[in-house]
Nucleic acid binder design. Structure first.
Lengths: 142, 142
DNA sequence: GTCAGTGCAAACCCTTTGCAGAAAG
DNA sequence: CTTTCTGCAAAGGGTTTGCACTGAC
C-alpha cells in the first residue's frame, strides 16, 4: 500500500512517490495525491474534487478525472465499480474486497484473509488475469 | 434458471412465467422476455432494444429500461456491473461469476463450482447479505 | 523552445422522469 | 371504469473531449 503518514506527506515525498510510478509531479497531481494517500479510503471523483478545493480552487474537474484515471492506470489507486455510474477510487491497492451496503451506500473493506477464494477457474485460452473484484452486497436487517 | 427452449417459448408459457414472478404480462414485456429467456446471455439495454425491434418497432427505449429494472427486481434476470456506465443484463440467474475481457469487452460465465469462496467474512452488525459479485478481469496475452 | 498538462465549457452517453394517451383487469 | 403501463421527448448525472493557455523540463 502506498499510503503516507503525516510526516511522510511532504511535497517532496509525494513527488518521489509519483515519479516512482511514472507520473510527472505537477502541483495539481501532488494536491490530489495528498488527499488520496492520507489513509485507506473510498472517494468518488466529486469527493476528491471537493476535498482538494476546500480552501481555494486548486484543481479543475477535468484534471481530477484525468488524474484519477492516470493514477489508477499506474497502480497508485484502484477503481471500485459499484453501480452504473458509481465509481469509487480506493487508495488501498493491497489485494482486498468490499462490502457494499445498498441501504446506506457505504463501502467497506473486506480483508483478503477473511474472504478466501480457494479455487480459481481456468482462464480462457490466451488470456491473463488482471485482477479479481469481489463485492459482497449487504442490506440492513429489517 | 428460468430459460425457455424453443417449444416452451410460446406466448402463453412466457405469460405464465411472468405472472409467477409477479409481473403483469403486457405485450411489450412478453417481447422482452422472449429475447432474454432464449438462452444464457449478457445483453446491454441497447442490445435488448435492438433485438426486440428487429422487424418493426415494438417497444420504446423507456419501456426497455423500465422492464429490465422490473425483471431484475423480480429475480427474472440479474444485473452485472462491469464499468461505470456498463451494465449487462444476465438471463442466467443461477449463482455464478464472470470473466470480463478488458480488451474485447466480452463477458463470460464462470461456473460457481470452479470459483469457490471457502471463507466468508463476518457481516457488519445488523446487516444481511443480498449477493456476492465476483468479476475476474482478464486481458489478452501480448 | 517543445511537449505535456490544465482549465473551461461543451459534448456525450446512458439512464431516468414527467406527463398525456393507451391498454389491462 | 380504474389502475397500471407505454411512448415520447426532455432532463439528469457522471464522465470525456476539443482547444487554447500554462507550466514543466
Amino acid at each position: 500500500m502506498i499510503l503516507l503518514n503525516d510526516t511522510d506527506r511532504t511535497v517532496d515525498t509525494i513527488k518521489r512517490v509519483l515519479l516512482a510510478h511514472g507520473v510527472r509531479p505537477t502541483s495539481q497531481r501532488v494536491e490530489i495525491a495528498k488527499v488520496l494517500l492520507r489513509e485507506p479510503q473510498h472517494l468518488s471523483a466529486d469527493q476528491v474534487l471537493a476535498r482538494v478545493n476546500v480552501q481555494r480552487p486548486l484543481v479543475s474537474k477535468a484534471t481530477i478525472y484525468n488524474t484519477l484515471n492516470l493514477f489508477a492506470g499506474q497502480g497508485l489507486i484502484r477503481q471500485v465499480i459499484i453501480d452504473a455510474g458509481k465509481v469509487f477510487y480506493d487508495s488501498n491497492t493491497d489485494v482486498h474486497h468490499h462490502f457494499y451496503n445498498e441501504d446506506t451506500g457505504m463501502l467497506q473493506d473486506v480483508d483478503a484473509s477473511t474472504l478466501k477464494i480457494d479455487r480459481l477457474p481456468k482462464l480462457p485460452e490466451g488470456t491473463q488475469e488482471t485482477g479479481i473484484d469481489v463485492i459482497v452486497r449487504i442490506r440492513n436487517k429489517p
